[in-house]
């Protein structure tokens, strides 16, 4: 039983979305409170990543019904950059490489955009450098990352670490990590998990989208949701993940509403 009485951070009600006329999300309902970690698990093609992209505000998707309230604000009315500044963070499944845009500068600009929106002064260069170096050390990242282009020439694992690094710098109210565990070896997985766990608690809520139970060995979720057919089919505590591991996704597919 979940006794968390933190503030409601995200409320998704009957969210439906299409891409190119095709229904992908078919009535998603989800509630998350501050301090909670939720895992959304489901088979490939079930719409988990679409949910992440819709929450981030990707224009390719059209929301056809439902609502999303983020920290008391109608999130669907905000532009992607406004959502980020309001404290939403998406950790991408496939972080894009942007040669020519410096990693450190992007982080600084992102942090300052957020601080500006909160009427805080810009972070000064020394302060920022100290912050980023500490976080990079924690994420076991080489300092040469600072001077490289965003994700440029990074391995899959490096890209994922970089996503978590950004999350740690930006300290979002809600982070959605889209298959951050995929393609990671066990050492990288531990580092990524440590990053996520370090943010855990307090004001921060985290949604882990994952295909495998493996990540949940390192990050213990408060709630587990099984996503199939464009909506959440089943919710439970962490034991649901283990049950899912045993019984496979076909088990929940059977419950699917046509």
């Amino acid at each position: 039983m979940n006794l968390n009485t933190g503030k409601q951070v995200l409320t998704i009600s009957n969210l439906c979305a299409t891409v190119a006329g095709k229904d992908i999300l078919k009535g998603v309902d989800l509630e998350i409170r501050a301090g909670e970690v939720h895992a959304i698990m489901g088979p490939n093609g079930s719409g988990k990543s679409t949910l992440a992209q819709v929450l981030a505000g990707r224009e390719d998707y059209e929301v056809t019904a439902g609502s999303v309230s983020f920290d008391g604000v109608d999130m669907l009315a905000l532009r992607p950059e406004e959502r980020a500044r309001a404290g939403f963070f998406l950790g991408f499944q496939y972080p894009v490489e942007i040669p020519g845009v410096n990693n450190a500068y992007l982080l600084k600009a992102a942090l300052n955009a957020k601080r500006k929106a909160a009427n805080l002064p810009e972070v000064d260069a020394y302060e920022f450098l100290a912050l980023i170096k500490a976080k990079m050390k924690f994420m076991q990242m080489d300092e040469s990352f600072l001077s490289r282009g965003v994700n440029e020439g990074f391995s899959g694992g490096e890209k994922k670490r970089n996503e978590i690094l950004q999350m740690l710098i930006l300290e979002p109210k809600l982070a959605v990590l889209d298959e951050t565990d995929s393609g990671l070896d066990i050492d990288a997985l531990k580092v990524v998990a440590a990053g996520v766990n370090s943010l855990r608690g307090g004001e921060h809520a985290i949604i882990l989208i994952t295909h495998y139970q493996r990540l949940l060995d390192y990050i213990e979720p408060d709630r587990v949701h099984v996503f199939a057919g464009g909506r959440i089919q089943k919710s439970g505590d962490k034991s649901l993940a283990l049950e899912l591991e045993d019984r496979g996704y076909d088990w929940v597919r059977g419950d699917r509403v046509a």
């Binding site: 505000g57 990707r58 992607p80 950059e81 980020a84 998406l90 992007l106 600009a109 992102a110 957020k114």
Partner: peptide
């Protein structure tokens, strides 16, 4: 989109 999603 990546840059927008970081608040730029």
């Amino acid at each position: 989109f990546y840059l927008l999603s970081r608040g730029i």
